[in-house]
């Protein structure tokens, strides 16, 4: 297990350095190191994509853990679209203030994401437990509603292109400011996931047994939902809507290293960073000089994977 972690960290470092030399402008390594393109454009971009990958993957792990549902992820639960609505309102209304250390866009994104996830969670409660089916149905229904609200905001604001392109997910405007904005969310969120991994492990045995093992199930659920929502909202506020990372990364990692949350959290965070950096590299070079929104790249990979998950679940 340790060795696997080292390999993953090593590949993370190698890939992130390699990606600094990839971009729409081709420069030789010697030129690149001296160029402001590397330090002012590519480095913050690589860092930001890695952090967003960490946050989305970790939220996915948390939500899957407390809901005991491999299909739970911030996108499907509507957290992302809720955050999108919040952020769009803040952008369209041109609000700009700072509240408790949060600037208006992430704050709006967070509040709306929280409203969204609580709505979906409550709607999906059939009797006293959520099932994969009711959760997805509730998520789809509420997300559809949020998309409509979003469309309305876009049309009324008259900023169609800027908001829409932002919603598709992109790191094209990444700067150090964004990196430092999301860094605390990523670090705190990851630490919470790591130190609550015992509780998530106990929850593998079902809520009732977790309870008899001394886990305060309700409290853990609230902590996880709030932490996951915060991280997702932070990610959405700097990169727009990027789906499927929170779904496919933990799922894939679980298939390889098993369901122990302590390693699952760490490996998912690292793999999320890796996947996001690579997806962003594809986004900025595949149709160069035109840049693709990274959200589109992720969905092109993620949607087929999601279908595959549904099929294997039915089979197994």
């Amino acid at each position: 297990m340790k060795r696997k972690a080292y390999y993953l960290i090593l590949s993370l470092i190698v890939v992130s350095i390699a990606l600094l030399f990839v971009g729409s402008v081709w420069l030789s390594p010697g030129e690149t190191v001296k160029s402001p393109i590397l330090w002012q454009i590519r480095l913050p971009r690589v860092l930001l994509s890695a952090l967003v990958g960490v946050m989305l993957a970790t939220s996915g792990v948390m939500l899957q853990g407390i809901l005991k549902n491999p299909l739970a992820d911030p996108y499907i639960l509507g957290v992302s679209s809720g955050a999108g609505v919040g952020a769009a309102i803040a952008i369209a209304a041109n609000y700009s203030f700072v509240f408790l250390g949060m600037s208006s866009v992430p704050l709006f994104a967070f509040v709306f994401a929280l409203i969204m996830v609580l709505t979906v969670y409550n709607l999906s409660k059939a009797a006293d437990r959520t099932t994969p089916e009711t959760l997805i149905l509730a998520g789809v229904a509420v997300s559809a509603f949020a998309s409509a609200v979003l469309a309305l905001i876009i049309i009324m604001s008259g900023q169609l292109q800027s908001i829409y392109f932002w919603l598709l997910g992109s790191f094209s405007a990444a700067g150090y400011r964004d990196v430092f904005t999301v860094l605390p969310y990523a670090v705190v969120g990851l630490l919470i996931a790591y130190f609550y991994s015992k509780e998530l492990n106990a929850l593998l045995l079902g809520e009732e047994i977790a309870y008899t093992l001394g886990v305060e199930v309700e409290r853990i659920r609230v902590i996880m939902i709030v932490a996951a929502t915060l991280m997702t909202a932070a990610a959405v506020s700097v990169s727009g809507l990027i789906g499927f990372v929170g779904l496919i990364v933990p799922h894939f990692v679980r298939m390889i290293i098993g369901p122990n949350y302590r390693s699952l959290v760490v490996f998912s965070a690292l793999s999320g960073a890796l996947l996001m950096m690579i997806a962003d590299a594809v986004a900025r070079t595949a149709l160069s000089p035109v840049e693709l929104p990274v959200g589109i790249v992720m969905s092109l990979i993620g949607a087929p994977f999601f279908i595959w998950v549904l099929r294997t679940r039915r089979g197994g």
Partner: peptide
């Protein structure tokens, strides 16, 4: 309570991907 009382429920789904030792170690959670 978890250090005083343990419950073996009637139906438990085997958790996928974990070993007997992993399962038993979860008993140390409290």
């Amino acid at each position: 309570i978890a250090r005083e009382v343990a419950l073996v429920p009637q139906l438990m789904e085997p958790v996928e991907g974990i070993t007997v030792l992993d399962l038993v170690l979860l008993g140390r959670t409290p």
